[in-house]
Design a protein around this nucleic acid. Structure first.
Length: 301
DNA sequence: TAGACGTGGGG
DNA sequence: TCCCCAAGTCT
């Protein structure tokens, strides 16, 4: 058989050097990439960066690392303090999980962020991506790091499509595995570089192909940059959803010094059934703690 | 395995 | 204005 598969069209080695060289010259100077960040700094940044843009994470990251420079410091706090300090980053369950992860690190790993992928994966709030990212960025290990940026880079450069599938597929994992450099240090470098390429150059909309170090080898460009034909990528409506109500409710709790009476929460949304459902949801998620007499507060705060 | 889960900036 | 999207995880 002489059939050419999509992954053998271009030798992996032909991609590594250009992308890593580009990264060496163009990488952003982000605080969690500096040596002093340590594994804990990398882990905190990864939690915050799950679905939240870098620019919004920056100031909150600095506050967190100043206040809680080690996992033990966060573990000693009430979970509600983590939720409060999370500010407006969104998806506040991440704050709760990061706090829980700090507690687990204290209990199971003597206060040090574990090195092994399986141990990282076992921590709350850490999935396939974050485990690989921490192991790779903090400890220089060799793991396929498949985030939304890398998936888009591979979709274009390797598969020749404008966008990756809705959910990560086995085919994508295979590509990531086959592209992974053999050497640990190069693999870690490649992971960071390919992510950065997706974040800065191979962006979702209006990619800067003129500035791309592998534009000449890009399967999507070679195919004439065909428009995306797959199923419509899910748009997330927000206005009027429980999520919006939850956000407003939690904002009130976050900004209050202490417990808040029901009446104050009632003002954020006029529809009582949805309002009650949202509040119940927050309570069952552990983001809000009901006290006696219809008073609420952030958990343990 | 879809769907839930916040928030705000840019085109 | 409206729509899309941003270093995912969990159920």
């Amino acid at each position: 058989m002489t059939a050419t598969t999509e992954t053998t069209t271009t030798a992996p080695e032909a991609l590594h050097a250009p992308v890593i060289d580009w990264f060496d010259g163009c990488a952003r100077d982000l605080p969690w990439r500096r040596p002093e960040a340590g594994a804990w700094g990398v882990m905190v940044s990864e939690f915050m960066l799950q679905q939240t843009p870098v620019n919004r994470v920056l100031p909150v990251y600095e506050q967190w690392m100043t206040r809680w420079p080690r996992p033990a410091n966060l573990a000693d706090e009430a979970p509600g303090e983590a939720v409060r300090a999370w500010g407006r980053l969104g998806y506040p369950r991440r704050a709760l999980r990061l706090h829980a992860a700090a507690v687990a690190i204290q209990e199971r790993h003597n206060g040090d962020v574990p090195r092994r992928h399986a141990q990282l994966l076992a921590l709350p709030g850490i999935g396939e991506y974050t485990a690989a990212a921490v192991a790779s960025f903090a400890y220089g290990q060799r793991h396929p790091v498949l985030d939304t940026n890398v998936r888009r880079v591979y979709a274009r450069a390797i598969s020749g499509t404008e966008f990756p599938p809705g959910a990560t597929t086995a085919a994508e994992r295979r590509i990531a595995r086959e592209l992974l450099p053999d050497d640990d240090d190069t693999a870690a470098r490649w992971a960071a570089a390919s992510m950065e390429l997706g974040a800065l150059v191979c962006t979702s909309r209006n990619p800067s192909c003129h500035a791309c170090p592998i534009a000449q080898q890009c399967a999507w460009r070679q195919a004439g940059s065909p428009a995306y034909e797959g199923p419509p990528r899910r748009g997330q409506t927000y206005a009027g959803t429980d999520r919006q109500v939850r956000g407003r409710l939690l904002a009130v709790l976050r900004e209050a010094d202490g417990p808040v009476p029901q009446a104050a929460l009632d003002q954020v949304w006029d529809e009582p059934v949805q309002r009650a459902r949202a509040l119940d949801g927050l309570v069952s998620d552990g983001l809000v703690e009901p006290l006696a007499d219809g008073v609420y507060r952030l958990p343990g705060a």
